[in-house]
Write a protein that binds this DNA or RNA. Structure first.
Lengths: 267, 267
DNA sequence: CAGTGGTCTAGACCACCAC
DNA sequence: TGGTGGTCTAGACCACTGC
């Protein structure tokens, strides 16, 4: 009796874990696997669906099925570093260190633009985080530029593999004309620049969801249609409760684990 | 030309969102849908796979396909409450409040036992979180009961729908003979009891991963084979860096979003 | 028992990629 | 152009549920 697709998925998984199919290499074509296991191609396809959903392989039409290259990586979401060393969505010390251990180099590309912010970002900027639930007074400049944001789109790579997308929004009334509009934001990054403007981020909120990638995201992250992403919305506010950054971070879920660490005491 | 499975998935999704198929109700059988859309049953099946993966529906063999009942819920992982009001994996004020707004009541069941802890939990208990990377001195009692834990298994429901599983481990040398071994741990819960023992949890670490549910978890959470869970490992340590609780929390990923909120200043 | 989804097949046509 | 996966079918048998 031939194997079912669960068993075939298990066998292929074992081969990947044993290294029979090496990271980054191609699996045999579905035809070939169907012959080997003596099942229909559709059964092999279904087995592969499983591995794809797990993030173990990735298929590309016209090319074939490729074994995942990178191990699961960890992202520490609450750094112990001083604010100056922390920038949302940026390759951080810990991350770079971990990659280095694995023999990968990290790299990121940034594009900056000035855009009308999406509705949910505008809402975050207007929805002040004040204990009393009140509202801040807004300056004329702020009112004029409402809804406009400086947008920093960052693509992160581990070696040549794209691993993360982050889109940071900064109120135009605040960031316009500053180094936040430059590719290189200088020592300490955007958070240091915000601090110099009198709006040091001190309060953070991250909201984690799981979803399928959009087409754009899937294309950049080289994601399979079966694969999911963590969708993290990070809002940073200054001591007046004003949201000074909204960051939308997208990571392949099979590629990352998230870590939060905090204390209830001062320390 | 008949529709493809993407289009069919979209149409079914739209019907669910419109309320044509109501939450908790049954979808037409695959046969019936195949006739309606004039495709093979397999094509309908593939469309449903999509909706299952999204968590919009759940299929049970021999029964049918059911529309998800609950909306996506939020779990605030870092409470502003005093430690006494916070217990990992426990129905918290915010959660109960949210459910109440939706017309659901929350409820949980707890089972307590004394067990040999799994390897990763033992490691967490032995791996002290000290800045110097050193080790604590261990008492005789502690050495005798190494590897043994008081285990609190908590099942959470929203209305009648199971929504979360949490398994809390407490070092036997610490928790044995205390109210932590009781079903009802008293006012403030286990964290207050730990505090009374001189081991108030002050440092927390949560590690989030995504994975498929085990068979047991799937059975309890009524999960579809296509659906994923958040696997959260929460470690709580006292001011000496001793891990006093390890909590393994399992949540259907389509059912929850996680929120972390913190400040870099004392506040 | 009838009704439901799970799984499988053999063959087909298509879209996309690299050469 | 040849190879790869995407998708589809018509029919089949099975496992499980509820009556």
């Amino acid at each position: 009796m031939p194997l079912g697709y669960h068993a075939i998925a298990g066998e292929l998984r074992a081969r990947i874990e044993r290294g029979t199919y090496e990271p980054g290499s191609r699996l045999p074509a579905e035809d070939a696997l169907a012959r080997e296991f003596d099942v229909s191609r559709q059964t092999v396809n279904k087995a592969l669906l499983r591995l794809r959903a797990e993030g173990l392989v990735r298929v590309e039409r016209g090319i074939g099925t490729t074994v995942r290259e990178l191990p699961v990586m960890t992202t520490e979401r609450i750094g112990r570093q001083a604010p100056a060393q922390r920038e949302a969505g940026e390759a951080r010390g810990a991350f770079q260190g971990e990659l280095a251990t694995l023999g990968y180099t990290s790299r990121s590309e940034v594009e900056v633009s000035r855009e009308r912010a999406p509705a949910d970002v505008v809402r975050a900027f207007e929805d002040d985080d004040l204990p009393e639930g009140g509202h801040r007074r807004r300056s004329a400049r702020e009112r004029e530029t409402a809804g406009i944001a400086i947008v920093r789109r960052r693509k992160m790579f581990a070696g040549d593999v794209p691993v993360q997308l982050a889109t940071g929004y900064y109120p135009a009334g605040l960031a316009e004309g500053t180094e936040i509009e430059q590719q290189d934001t200088g020592p300490g990054g955007t958070y240091s620049r915000l601090a110099e403007l009198g709006h040091a981020p001190v309060r953070f909120r991250e909201r984690i969801r799981l979803r399928l990638a959009t087409d754009d995201e899937a294309a950049f992250l080289r994601l399979d249609t079966e694969q999911r992403v963590y969708d993290v919305e990070r809002i940073a506010s200054d001591s007046n409760g004003r949201a000074v950054e909204v960051n939308m971070i997208v990571m392949p879920a099979h590629q990352w684990q998230l870590v939060y660490e905090w204390t209830t005491e001062n320390g």
